[in-house]
């Protein structure tokens, strides 16, 4: 058991304070970094992808030092990484562990699937109501068309 923990720590080293986003589908790791605006992050940031996972086959992990996300920020992740879990770390200890939740609204995260939508043709923030959380269907506030999971793309 101890050996197991040690091995995991060697793969991605532990952080003292901050947030670990675990169980991200490997393909979504870089999307999550983008949504959370971590590309310019100045503190320690550990990113791992294609790790072996019993549950998922392959998974990604992001560890963000000295950062505690607001829940609405975190819920954005659920649109791309519904399997993700969040682990809040203080003084190397796990304070809280929770699953992400798909939000009721999504503002300016994804693109509208409809090429003729005003949001794809003018400088307008996208706004969606999530009308189906399990199948992930978003209704555009502007053109009223539905963007489904398979069509979701970033702004």
């Amino acid at each position: 058991m101890e050996k197991e923990i040690l091995r995991k720590e060697l793969k991605v080293s532990a952080i003292e304070n901050g947030t670990v986003i675990d169980h991200i589908p490997s393909a979504s790791v870089f999307q999550v970094i983008k949504i959370l605006n971590l590309t310019e992050y100045q503190n320690q940031l550990l990113i791992a992808t294609n790790l072996d996972s019993q549950k998922m086959g392959k998974k990604g992990i992001i560890k963000v030092s000295n950062k505690f996300f607001k829940s609405d920020e975190i819920n954005k992740i659920a649109l791309f990484a519904p399997t993700a879990t969040l682990i809040i770390i203080k003084n190397f200890e796990v304070i809280e562990k929770k699953k992400v939740e798909v939000p009721d609204f999504a503002e300016n995260i994804v693109k509208c699937f409809n090429p003729n939508c005003i949001t794809n043709n003018e400088d307008v923030n996208t706004k969606f109501t999530v009308i189906d959380k399990t199948d992930l269907k978003l209704r555009c506030h502007y053109c009223e068309k539905i963007t489904a999971r398979k069509n979701i793309a970033f702004r």
């Binding site: 409809n114 003729n116 005003i118 949001t119 003018e122 502007y142 009223e144």
Partner: peptide, 27 residues
């Protein structure tokens, strides 16, 4: 307007009420 959603956007920008007389294939 030929774009879908244009009237909704206009109503959020305008200082006066907007009546949609057709926004693309939408409404």
């Amino acid at each position: 307007h030929p774009r879908e959603g244009s009237a909704r956007f206009a109503s959020e920008v305008a200082k006066v009420p907007v009546i949609n007389a057709g926004d693309g294939a939408n409404q």
